[in-house]
Design a protein around this nucleic acid. Structure first.
Length: 327
DNA sequence: GGGCTGCAATGCTCATAGGG
DNA sequence: CCCTATGAGCATTGCAGCCC
């Protein structure tokens, strides 16, 4: 975006304009009829031509960055420091917070690239992974990546699988910390809304016991817990330097989470996929993404509302229900 | 007892080398 | 090109110890 601002001629784009533009891009994807006209109507003070020009500049920036023709601009994104600039601009262009990106220059450059911070797997992604595992089998990480966990590369899927199986194999050892790998079934998950988050009469001062009960009632691993109810998380609010998450929804943590005790903000960052939410879900730009198109829609995969079928252990020989993810 | 702090243990993701 | 194996780096968790 910084490049776009620098190179944009004839019209100046301030931050608010950009936010409106990005939001519009997300809402009106490339399948939308008269997309640009619609986008222009929601970006105040911009004409159709200016919007299109801005998009073209943005697209060119991404191309130049990805081709290595120009160095990365010195972005300062406080909200998602682990997302590099080309990811970010690509994400904008694709109309969502697409986290998938192949690592194009790995191992080729001797330049010590700054290591990316890991983007934790959400329980939704893990369940999609389990579905893919059942559907395509162990080893076909590419298919799983392409058709099931579309937010992850095959490399990421493979790496995740390694740790998953390692975790499974060490299962009989005494119970260790809760892990996302504890999810071994593609279970039907009760939609998590603010309403049913509160079914136990949960309040901001909920105890860990309450939370555990709630967690069990939702059949979710502790890993997925809504940390705002966690005593330690509550502690984190009073001790931002201690348990403050350093990536993901970090900047919304102390504000949104604290102000909206029931907000679904996991410790590992905002889960942006498919959980019904009532309140604001923030993008990396701090814009409300609630009604934006999910990232899958831009990846050539027809998106229907997420549905995870009835549960069955992943290591079972057969599954007694139609595994089709969306039907 | 409750809150805070420090720290070791653990878990997770990413980078990368090597083999098929 | 893809998958597997391995290890580094970093974040989170759990717990003990200290202080009020």
């Amino acid at each position: 975006m910084a490049l776009a601002q620098k190179t944009s001629v004839g019209s100046s784009w301030n931050k608010d304009d950009d936010i409106a533009f990005e939001r519009a891009l997300a809402i009106y994807n490339d399948k939308t009829e008269i997309r640009w006209k619609k986008i222009a109507t929601v970006v105040p003070g911009k004409t159709l031509e200016q919007v299109i020009e801005h998009y073209n500049i943005l697209a060119r920036d991404v191309m130049l960055i990805e081709s290595g023709c120009i160095p990365l601009p010195d972005y300062e994104f406080s909200e998602e420091p682990n997302q590099d600039a080309s990811d970010k601009e690509r994400s904008i262009l694709e109309g969502g917070n697409n986290r998938k990106c192949e690592f194009k220059h790995k191992g080729k450059s001797k330049l010590k690239q700054k290591r990316r911070k890991g983007i934790p797997w959400t329980s939704i992604e893990h369940r999609q992974f389990l579905l893919g595992l059942k559907k395509y089998g162990k080893g076909d990480w590419r298919s799983i990546s392409r058709h099931c966990v579309v937010t992850r590369t095959s490399t990421q899927v493979a790496s995740h699988a390694q740790k998953y199986f390692a975790h499974i194999n060490s299962k009989d050892k005494k119970k260790k910390r809760p892990s996302i790998h504890d999810i071994t079934v593609v279970e039907k998950q009760k939609p998590i809304t603010w309403q049913n988050r509160n079914i136990n009469g949960a309040t901001t001062s909920n105890t860990q016991a309450n939370q555990t009960t709630l967690q069990q009632s939702l059949n979710l691993p502790i890993y997925d817990r809504p940390n705002i109810w966690n005593t330690q998380a509550t502690q984190a609010i009073s001790q931002p330097s201690r348990n403050h998450p350093t990536y993901g929804a970090s900047t919304t943590w102390n504000t949104q989470a604290a102000l909206q005790p029931s907000a679904n903000i996991p410790m590992y960052g905002t889960s942006t996929i498919s959980q019904p939410m009532v309140g604001p879900m923030l993008s990396t730009f701090g814009t409300n993404l609630n009604r934006m198109a999910p990232p899958h829609m831009t990846s050539g995969v027809q998106h229907k509302p997420y549905y995870s079928g009835p549960s069955a252990p992943i290591n079972m020989d057969s599954i007694p229900y139609n595994i089709d993810l969306y039907n």
